[in-house]
Design a protein around this nucleic acid. Sequence first.
DNA 1: GCATGATCAGTTAAGTTTAG
DNA 2: CTAAACTTAACTGATCATGC
Length: 400
Amino acid sequence: MHVVTIQERQDKYVKKHNAAIRSYSEMSLLGRKIANVLLYNAYPNLTAQSIHTISISQLLNLLSLKTHDYQKLKHSIKQLMSTIIEWDVGKKEKITINIEDDKLFNSKENWKACTLLSSVQINGTIIKYEYSEVLRELFYQPSFYSKISLCIQSKFRSAYAISLYENCLSYLNCGTTGWLDIVAFRKIMGVHSSQYQIFRDLNRRVLQPAIKEVNKVSNIEVTCETKKIARVVSYIKLCISHKKVDVEKEIYHQNSSDLFEKLINYGASKNQAKSWVITYGEIYIKEKLDLIKNSTITIKNPIAFLNKAIKENWSGLKIKPQVYENKQVYEKQYLSQEENITWFKSLTDNEKIKLLDRATFIFPMLTVHMEYQKIKILDEKFINSNIFTMFMQILNRNNI
DNA sequence: GCATGATCAGTTAAGTTTAG
DNA sequence: CTAAACTTAACTGATCATGC
């Protein structure tokens, strides 16, 4: 069997199930980073094998760490064995947070739970770790996941910030978390009930610094609003959007720095190089660079050659520019709000209820939003609410 | 020394109660 | 009804502990 190696993949992103994101809430900064790297390393062979290996140097490389404190690493890895991932597997298959009094927790549902890693072994410089079968199934094709960049995660210095980042990513498509009560917010941030009992401290020491750090180091922009009941801040709403500039920076610094160097060496300006990579994709540009490299004749003006090769897709190669593919997907997926309303109105009540089951399975927080706004799927006001937009996005009937 | 996590004291703002 | 007094929570500044 062919085993895919890390080097064969260029994008260092890990698909992380939202059940895992929530279950990681009490983990340390390093533990969370390691868990993501281990999943990234195992992912290509996740279904094929239960035991995966990674060298310590590879792990440190993916963590962007230079430490030699192996005791600390060992402790953090061991911590993963006591991290419990819990999710429901009943008809509704809701994902729950592993805290008993959580709103989503329902003792009538069937649920599964297991530790993140079922075993760990260190042989010299090689770490062997094992995922249980149920977890491998859950993680391999997660129905609702966030794509976490290992490069961005390595920049985080605070556990609260990385927790906020991962949780916000799950809400990126909706653009907002909706109004979360403080208790729910504390849970997702991993703030114990004994800590920061006064909002002023929670705000100043957890919320604000975490937002500041996420906005500084990540590819998303987070703002927050609070709602008071009487004089007490009782709800927090986080608004999340893409941060375009940083995505470009990330491409420049992380994935394509070699490619940029080559393009600049051939005489391209920084802006031109950046524009090509962002517009056409790294693989496509590399392919055109290879044309110059493999050319039997001397190319007098490589940049002019590249420019034309890129724009006219010279050599009829297999890879098409990403921009065109993305455009097709975009046009295919996009539906207007009116089209969604018409479609929704054409459904029977039974079909609507089934869809709600599907949507809450994909995005459990939908239940909380609906309960909070006191909206039911069969209500007439449902189609005019922001929940409807969220609902359509969850069902992938919008341009996500 | 610096970053981060945690807590406290004084001040300010806003809501509630009560005396006139 | 009104305004002063009271209560409560947020804001701000400061300090301490811990780990790197």
